[in-house]
């Protein structure tokens, strides 16, 4: 990842883009790891037969997994999760195994030391067999408020050209 560029609050202005962080491609192991960590054991996310019986071509991620990745990207843009004051997500489509998740954000307003941002997470990929999905579509629309430290610098990722590739897989997790 490129090092966050430190800026002052005065340099933060509406319309600024926060960059792009790409997670994935998502694996069934990622889904299982999130199920175990969160306690969300709905079989629709892990049991192929169960998922098919509901009419889905295969299993898909629980919405809070990509929403967790998006919160991770947001936290990194602002120097850590501890500055978050509000985080809201709306789920617009399912995220499938094999999908990448591209997270972007944009400054909407600055009020004192509270920065309000809009967020988007797009799924990218061919999608499962049996569905004709667009190669990229919005999976999560979000918004957040961050209270940046009074007088302190604001770390943030910088330009829209910054792309951070992270593979969230078993090997990565095992290394920790």
């Amino acid at each position: 990842m490129s090092e966050p560029r430190m800026v002052t609050l005065a340099e933060v202005h509406p319309g600024q883009e926060l960059g792009e962080v790409v997670f994935g491609p998502l694996t069934r192991d990622d889904i299982k790891r999130y199920a175990d960590a969160s306690g969300d054991h709905n079989p629709i996310h892990q049991d192929e037969d169960y998922a098919r019986a509901t009419g889905a071509p295969t299993v898909f991620a629980m919405g809070m997994l990509p929403a967790g990745y998006l919160a991770h990207a947001l936290s990194d843009w602002f120097g850590g999760p501890q500055h978050l004051r509000r985080y809201k997500v709306r789920f617009t489509t399912r995220v499938w195994p094999g999908d990448e998740l591209a997270c972007t954000g944009r400054i909407e307003s600055v009020d004192g030391n509270v920065v309000r941002v809009s967020l988007a997470a797009a799924r990218r990929g061919p999608g499962p067999e049996g569905l004709s999905l667009p190669a990229e579509e919005l999976a999560i629309a979000g918004e957040a408020e961050i209270e940046v430290p009074e007088g302190g610098p604001v770390p943030f990722a910088g330009t829209p050209a910054d792309v951070v590739e992270r593979r969230i897989g078993g090997d990565d997790a095992a290394r920790r």
């Binding site: 997670f23 990622d30 790891r33 175990d36 960590a37 969160s38 991770h72 920790r176």
Partner: peptide, 18 residues
């Protein structure tokens, strides 16, 4: 233990979580 497991599950690497 649960915090670390959850952080790993969302790909976090920020040391304040670990």
């Amino acid at each position: 233990e649960e915090v670390r497991a959850f952080a790993r599950a969302v790909g976090e690497d920020n040391p304040v979580l670990y």
